[in-house]
């Protein structure tokens, strides 16, 4: 049985690795260097990295406390809230983009309010970040919630018994003890946001993040031109992912 399962597993692995490997092999080092030096490519990669990072950071401020509530508090409609959080994972991302556009376009109340503050969603950085966050938040919330749930409540009780306020208990006991899961959630959210295409392209075609740039080069010039950008971007993503994973102490888990 194990032999059969191993063979089946091998097929799945091959299915993931083969296209990527083939793509990497089809890009010569010369073309790779040339693409990596391309100003438009560089700009879009930088943009993708910082918008995803910023979206993760901004939304973490509210998402981590929410995760704590979901792990600890009992409240009506909790199941509904838990289900809602997973919603962005299952709906098509282009549909998510359309939904966001409906809320943030220039002629809506929210759009006007943010516009008055100088924040443009459609075709703006805020729009890119909103689209990235919308589809990647579940990863942060789910990971953090599981992390908080795994912290024995006894530690929090002891802290409270020693006179610590709930907020101090949260920051000195709950967050540090759940930090692994939270950081891993942040990394996942960042990575997922970075790779988002569908929701972003609907709300902000320009400024162009790398997934959109790849799509555009494919549409305008064909496979030959889209491929090197993909390879450069994937390389950057992999480097970032590995570095972040090892920083968060998940190195062993990741490499095993």
């Amino acid at each position: 049985m194990f032999l059969v399962f191993s063979l089946l597993g091998g097929v799945v692995l091959l299915f993931i690795i083969a296209p990527l490997a083939a793509m990497f092999l089809q890009v010569s080092p010369g073309v790779f260097a040339e693409t990596a030096a391309d100003k438009e490519v560089r700009g879009s990669i930088m943009l993708t990295l910082w918008t995803s990072m910023a979206a993760t950071a901004v939304f973490a401020i509210a998402a981590v406390p929410l995760a704590y509530l979901l792990a600890r508090a009992q409240f009506p409609l909790k199941r509904f809230v838990n289900g809602t959080i997973d919603l962005p994972i299952v709906i098509p991302h282009s549909a998510a983009g359309i939904a966001l556009l409906g809320v943030f376009s220039r002629d809506t109340i929210a759009g006007k309010a943010f516009g008055a503050l100088g924040i443009e969603f459609v075709g703006g950085y805020a729009g890119i970040m909103a689209a990235m966050a919308f589809v990647s938040l579940p990863f942060l919330i789910n990971a953090s919630r599981d992390g908080f749930a795994a912290v024995p409540q006894r530690y929090e009780n002891v802290a409270r018994n020693l006179g610590a306020s709930p907020i101090r208990t949260f920051f000195t006991i709950s967050v540090p003890l759940a930090s692994r899961s939270i950081v891993s959630g942040l990394v996942l959210m960042f990575a997922r946001g970075m790779s988002e295409f569908g929701a972003v392209i609907i709300i902000a075609y320009h400024p162009m993040i790398t997934p959109v740039l790849i799509f555009e080069r494919f549409g305008a010039f064909g496979l030959k031109y889209a491929r090197p950008v993909s390879v450069v971007f994937i390389s950057v993503c992999l480097v970032f992912f590995i570095v972040l994973r090892s920083i968060s102490g998940e190195k062993r888990k990741f490499f095993q």
Binding site: Y155, A159, N161, I173
Partner: peptide
């Protein structure tokens, strides 16, 4: 203040 000491100590591990 009423302090509690548990059987499993519950020392903050971090």
């Amino acid at each position: 203040q009423i302090s509690i000491v548990y059987q499993d100590q519950a020392l903050f591990p971090h």
